[in-house]
């Protein structure tokens, strides 16, 4: 009979183990975020609620108020931040320190998969084997990690992360950035949106993710001529979710044709310069978010 074989845990660890390499990845993320005041996630349980438009407007407004702002477009399969902020395809400068982000005229530092792909080309992964779906989630998590750790973000007051629809990515982001300053959930007034966002908020709460506020987008339609807002949906998802989860409803942004046009034209920054009730709401939202810190909200 052969002698008893030692077990995995009987043998000493070496610095080449996979857990060690993953820990080293986490350390690179932490090191890159040392000069970042607050990381804020923008999430939604549902697609098509205007989350990216809210995020890009928020980033532009924060920059306009003098904050140093970064924006990670974590919607790898449907990136839109560069289009909304008017950033054309360009080569990203690579140095020994990492990859320089694109910068808008207003100073928002942006990283997006759209900068790495040909226009109108979808994200495709190189699969050397069938069943790529098995590890697709790991690859996308890895891309999000590299968007944080490998980009020369520099000193930032706020780094916004525009997450794709669904709840999985916010949990992954929280795994990468345990001291997330907060997350902002975006909904539209409809009952379907309320149900989808409620599921995300429930999951977020179960995982101790700090949901700090709600935004209800498309909360009516604003008339260009008289500034009056008329309803678009029957529901009141924003208020209902705020009550259900005891989270403040920070803004109710109506459909505004000038905002929609500015987003389509990549001209959100100039749009913010013009006055208006919607711009005022976004400015107020930016002021609130700029007070979020990992330790807790600053007293307003």
């Amino acid at each position: 009979m052969s002698p008893k074989i030692r077990t995995y845990f009987d043998l000493p660890e070496s610095d080449s183990t996979l857990p060690d390499q993953i820990a080293a990845q986490d350390r690179r993320v932490a090191a890159r975020l040392e000069d970042v005041g607050a990381v804020v996630a923008i999430m939604s349980g549902k697609g098509g609620v205007g989350k990216s438009l809210v995020t890009a407007s928020l980033a532009a407004s924060l920059a306009r108020s003098g904050k140093r702002v970064g924006l990670i477009d974590a919607d790898l399969n449907g990136p839109s931040a560069t289009g909304l902020l008017g950033i054309p395809p360009r080569s990203l400068v690579e140095s020994g320190e990492g990859i320089e982000p694109a910068v808008t005229p207003g100073g928002v530092r942006v990283m997006s998969m759209a900068l790495l792909l040909e226009p109108d080309t979808g994200l495709a992964w190189r699969d050397s084997a069938d069943a790529g779906f098995v590890w697709r989630g790991a690859q996308e998590r890895g891309a999000l990690r590299e968007f944080i750790s490998d980009v020369c973000w520099g000193e930032l007051d706020v780094l916004l992360v525009d997450l794709p629809p669904g709840s999985q990515r916010v949990a992954e982001l929280h795994g990468l950035v345990p001291n997330l300053a907060g997350s902002l959930a975006v909904t539209i007034p409809s009952g379907a949106s309320r149900d989808a966002v409620a599921r995300s908020l429930d999951l977020a709460r179960a995982r101790d993710l700090p949901v700090r506020g709600l935004v209800e987008n498309l909360a009516g339609a604003r008339c260009d001529a008289c500034d009056r807002v008329s309803p678009l949906y029957d529901g009141e998802a924003g208020r209902e979710l705020a009550d259900q989860f005891d989270v403040p409803l920070l803004a109710q942004i109506p459909f505004d044709r000038t905002l929609a046009r500015a987003g389509d034209a990549g001209a959100l920054e100039p749009w913010l310069e013009s006055g208006g009730s919607v711009q005022d709401q976004i400015r107020a939202l930016a002021e609130t978010v700029s007070g979020w810190t990992p330790a807790g909200p600053e007293e307003a």
Partner: peptide
């Protein structure tokens, strides 16, 4: 990992 990357991305 990405097979559809833009040639002049960097």
């Amino acid at each position: 990992g990405v097979s559809s990357g833009r040639d002049e991305a960097f």
